[in-house]
C-alpha cells in the first residue's frame, strides 16, 4: 500500500491565478478547490457524479469535480463560480438572470447549475425549452422544480452576451 504522504505537486490556473499545491494522489479535485484553495462556492452534493453541485470548468468544459483527481488537473485552467465576477461587482449574465427570475431557493445547487448553464449557452446560444432541460440533466435541484431556472436561461437565449 503506498504511503498516504506520497504527495504530488500540482500547478494549475484557478480563476486566472496560478497556484501550486502538493496533494495526495487520491485527493479529489473538489477537495483541492474547497480545502486547499478555500473556494467553497463549489459544493459537494451527492459525491457520486449525479447531482452536479460540484460542477466547475476545466479548460472551458463543464465537469463534475467530485469525479476528477486533483493530480489530473496539473497544468489545467479551472474556473469556479468565484471566477465569474468579483465580490460586490456586477453579477455575470447567468447569475443576474438567476437572480432576476428567482431561479434559486436554498442556493445549494446554484453554483454548479450556473457553471453548467455557461456551457449550455456556449454550445447552443438559442436553446429550446427541451434543449435547456436536456442540457441540465446533470444538475439536480430539490427546491425550484426547475421552472424558474428554465425561464432564467430562456431570458438569456440569443442575447449575444458572453455567458
Amino acid at each position: 500500500m503506498p504511503e498516504p504522504d506520497n504527495r504530488h505537486v500540482v500547478t494549475l490556473e484557478i480563476n486566472g491565478t496560478r497556484k501550486t499545491v502538493a496533494v495526495e494522489a487520491r485527493k479529489l479535485l473538489v477537495h483541492l478547490i474547497r480545502e486547499d484553495l478555500g473556494l467553497t462556492g463549489t459544493h459537494v452534493g451527492c459525491d457520486t457524479s449525479q447531482c452536479g453541485a460540484c460542477t466547475v470548468e476545466i479548460d472551458g468544459l463543464a465537469i463534475k469535480s467530485c469525479t476528477v483527481l486533483a493530480v489530473m488537473a496539473d497544468g489545467a485552467s479551472i474556473t469556479t463560480i468565484e471566477g465569474l465576477t468579483d465580490i460586490g461587482a456586477e453579477l455575470s449574465p447567468v447569475q443576474a438572470a438567476f437572480h432576476e427570475h428567482h431561479a434559486l431557493q436554498c442556493g445549494f445547487c446554484t453554483p454548479g447549475m450556473v457553471m453548467s448553464v455557461r456551457q449550455l449557452l456556449r454550445d447552443q446560444p438559442n436553446p429550446s425549452e427541451h434543449d435547456i432541460r436536456h442540457g441540465l440533466a446533470g444538475n439536480i435541484c430539490r427546491c425550484t422544480g426547475y421552472h424558474n431556472i428554465v425561464r432564467a436561461i430562456e431570458s438569456l437565449a440569443s442575447k449575444g452576451d458572453q455567458p
Binding site: S49, I63, A137, G138
Partner: peptide
C-alpha cells in the same frame, strides 16, 4: 449517455 458533464470526461 449520462449528462453533459459526464460526457465531457
Amino acid at each position: 449517455i449520462a449528462d453533459p458533464q459526464v460526457r465531457n470526461r
